[in-house]
Design a protein around this nucleic acid. Structure first.
Length: 247
DNA sequence: TTGAGATTCAACAATACCTC
DNA sequence: GAGGTATTGTTGAATCTCAA
């Protein structure tokens, strides 16, 4: 009997290894993702190759290139692993009786907006549930949700993988407030069109939604220089205020 | 030729499984 | 439960492979 026809002979952890390799396209990064050592990942890949009778990946300068067979396995493998996770999480979820810890990722702004009402709701309806809140980059949040490290991510997302469910919680816009006594005109063609600086957590990844909001301004100039948040940056209370606007 | 990354090897530890 | 065996993991090092 071929090993793949005998589940008893299969280490299902190898499917998690294959999923990580398909995600990362890089053996060392896939090992770090699980986490396991790089030689152990190499051994696991060797067992996968034997099990599936396919090389699965070819080496390239930048890492690993999946074979057509490996690519064909990618989508069904994700679905199978998602089903297994749901199976292990329990078929029926009862908030009032649950003692689960949910792992959430969000920004400090997201936490300030979403957490207070969420905590009130949990205290009332699900007192046994705990939350583990962390911060990650948007790509890190998507990767975390995709591989099960996170249960939920709250942020401003553009495109997300098709196998990740998403929902719009609220729409928000930008509001600028200034001291009326300073005489600074708060108009689209005033200083807003060309602010002296934008505060960005990572200079390489500017806040795209800020740029998108500036784009319609008639006299918007080139993007201003980015500066990291910190003591030299304007305090949060000095910055333009943003607030949620319910749909 | 070079550098990045994959593969392989040795030695050892932890764990699971099987047999008694 | 104890002991033997197989499997899979670890670290550390050397070697191989491939693309720029």
């Amino acid at each position: 009997m071929h090993p793949t026809n005998n589940l008893r002979a299969i280490d299902l952890n190898l499917l998690v290894v294959l999923d990580a390799l398909l995600h990362e396209r890089h053996l060392t990064r896939a090992a770090a993702r699980l986490p396991m050592s790089q030689p152990a990942m190499s051994h696991a890949l060797a067992r996968l190759r034997l099990l599936l009778g396919d090389p699965l990946f070819h080496r390239t300068r930048g890492g690993l290139r999946p074979t057509p067979h490996a690519l064909a396995l990618e989508a069904p493998l994700r679905e199978v692993l998602a089903q297994v996770r749901r199976l292990l999480a329990g078929a029926v979820f009862e908030p009032a009786a649950s003692r689960r810890v949910f792992r959430l990722a969000m920004s400090d702004y997201g936490a300030s907006v979403a957490l207070p009402p969420l905590m009130r709701c949990l205290r009332r309806d699900a007192p046994g549930i705990d939350l583990e809140i962390s911060y990650a980059s948007r790509s890190g949040m998507i990767a975390g949700v995709a591989d099960g490290q996170l249960d939920l991510a709250l942020a401003v997302f553009g495109e997300t993988p098709a196998d990740i469910r998403r929902a719009v919680l609220f729409h928000e816009g930008f509001v600028c407030a200034a001291d009326a006594g300073q005489g600074v005109p708060v108009t689209p063609d005033g200083p807003l069109a060309r602010p002296p600086a934008l505060v960005a957590a990572r200079p390489a990844q500017p806040p795209a939604e800020v740029d998108a909001a500036r784009a319609p301004l008639a006299h918007a100039g080139p993007a201003p220089p980015r500066r990291p948040p910190g003591p030299a940056a304007p305090r949060a209370h000095d910055a333009p205020r943003r607030g949620p606007r319910r749909p």
